[in-house]
Nucleic acid binder design. Structure first.
Lengths: 338, 338
DNA sequence: GTCACGTGCTGGAACGTTCCAAGGCTAGAC
DNA sequence: GTCTAGCCTTGGAACGTTCCAGCACGTGAC
């Protein structure tokens, strides 16, 4: 059984410092109201007894919990995991500076709204961070309808009613970077291996490839592919396109890029020297296999999310425009000859 | 600005149902005290107005927050991340069933104790989960001294004073599995590539390799290596050992196993067919590169951690023995010929 | 000397819940 | 009919904080 002594309260500190409760409270929250010598004395006692305000009491009275809710989706093993991890780390780190903490919760996988309602009604969190606002997810609209503060990582693709703070990474720019890099390496027939048309993110990235190709006045017919996110599908698609003269590939994911590498092995071709390959997301796999890859600035995204959260909680209206951050290209052996 | 109507409280529900506050409270917390018809009526009103108890108030009065603290360390890019991710997902998922949620916090990287104290003194969390209790980390002893409830993922290697609930994965068994598998494949000179002697986890895994080898009466001289966790170090160590006749390798990490694969490429040898390789942790890299690997049952660890947490919070004394779970071996092409 | 004012501090009230002691009511025993 | 017991329900108190109104005191203006 736990036998610790009860933590000191405002009253404890107050009586030891010879002042009232309220004065101790002010010492912490409005120090400018105290005479310097009183302030010193009170802070001294606070330090001495190791007083820390009780969160529940503070939350009950003041109405905010200093907690940010984040629904942590059931894991799909793969790169998405690792991305989330990088994002989450910076999120935790930068909320520390605003005095907030991250509350992870889960919900019924069948119901994308499960969990939010409870936290909201029990006033357990001050705001939410959304991380999966691809087209069609209802969370943003639902929270917006309830005037619940939140910031989304991911733009509201085709919801004109959406009017909330968001941050996203410019996927088209990433694909453009990758394509331009391959063009610079002298490639002319550069293929695109991306996701199904239903993926807004995938289509966005695809436009980057298209734009870079057309600016360079290179053809794209039969070079673009829409596949499921799967190494084997990519392997086969790569074979087809190499057959019609493709000498390089930009892929919507590292998983697909790995499929291309397999195709090269099967043909006895060397990545980089013979065929250029660039993946997307700079996963551990890319780092280990020497795969060039587009890297999302997840750390910057997290910092920006926290900044917007701060503004939103301070009552600022949602910015007219969301923030779009540019990814970078990490060049490794798979896209340069030598 | 937020213009939502104030959430309903116990009193709201009480007056609408024509009962007292306390009766509504009992309807939720001690329903057996109410007459069935009263219970029905009250629950009806609760559902109708969408009442959810205010967390802060409940926490203030009852003294527990239903929150579990987890210090989320600054990311070191690599496999450790992905491991943590798998663990965390299941942790979040299974705490849902006990009505708890996970509070992530961070702290000064220089001070392994930073953050814990604040949460404890502000009574913000009911307990902690520790995830990095390798030899020499002070968190466990510190929490134990303060009678703070916690469960550790990782055993207290050499602290005889330690007396707390913990769960760990049997690293030696994992290495044994991998070694036995390679022996079955007909290998006799099987090398070990592990970490420095200072790593307790590394030494534990190493004993598994040693034990399997000596049981099969195979020599281990000059076949074991203690390196930094780095593909290039592993690559060089593999070359040396292949030079003295090693035909297979068990590695303490997938990163090292990738180093071995590189060495094989450089020699024109094929993994699986010519030289057997098994990694550790079943990372995304292993999955993509067809690397056999020892997989930690992180999901089971998380479930067990939550179970122990539950017991600890119910006042049960720490079990005499920690729980040690067995890993499994995921066989892929790198360890079987054909 | 009175009044107005600003500074520094105080004490009661309130946030919404659960604990606790006690009240009303019904039923059974005598 | 009275008493006792048990069931269901109630209202006051308390958790520890912050909000708010107000008090005591000293200073300067008239």
């Amino acid at each position: 059984m736990v036998s610790e002594t009860a933590p000191p309260t405002l009253s404890t500190v107050a009586s030891r410092a010879g002042v009232s409760r309220q004065t101790v409270s002010n010492a912490l929250n409005n120090p400018e109201l105290l005479r310097p010598e009183t302030l010193d004395r009170v802070l001294g006692v606070i330090a001495e007894v190791g007083y820390t305000p009780n969160r529940a009491a503070r939350q009950l009275r003041s109405g905010n919990s200093r907690l940010i809710g984040l629904r942590f989706e059931p894991a799909q093993e793969g790169t998405a995991n690792a991305l989330m991890d990088r994002f989450l780390h910076t999120l935790v780190e930068s909320t520390r500076e605003t005095g907030h903490q991250i509350l992870l919760f889960s919900g019924d996988p069948e119901d994308p709204l499960d969990g939010y309602d409870d936290l909201l009604r029990s006033t357990a969190v001050d705001a939410f961070v959304l991380t999966d606002t691809y087209a069609g997810t209802p969370q943003a609209a639902w929270l917006q309808d309830r005037d619940a503060p939140f910031v989304a990582f991911g733009r509201p693709w085709d919801d004109p009613r959406a009017h909330h703070a968001w941050v996203d990474v410019d996927g088209a720019a990433g694909a453009r970077l990758a394509t331009a890099h391959l063009l610079e390496q002298g490639h002319e027939r550069i293929g695109w291996l991306g996701w199904e048309r239903s993926s807004r993110i995938g289509e966005d990235r695809r436009t980057g490839w298209k734009a870079a190709m057309s600016r360079a006045q290179k053809p794209t017919e039969r070079l673009g592919g829409r596949l499921t996110d799967n190494a084997d599908a990519a392997r086969m698609a790569a074979h087809e396109r190499i057959g019609i003269g493709a000498t390089a590939f930009v892929c919507a994911s590292d998983t697909m890029a790995v499929g291309v590498l397999r195709a090269l092995e099967e043909r006895g071709l060397r990545a980089g020297t013979d065929i250029g390959v660039v993946g997307f997301d700079d996963s551990a796999v890319a780092q280990v296999t020497g795969l060039s890859s587009v890297r999302q600035p997840l750390e910057d995204v997290a910092v920006e999310v926290v900044r917007l959260l701060h503004e939103t909680l301070a009552g600022a209206p949602a910015p007219e425009q969301g923030t779009v951050l540019a990814p970078s290209l990490v060049v490794r052996g798979s896209s340069v000859s030598g």
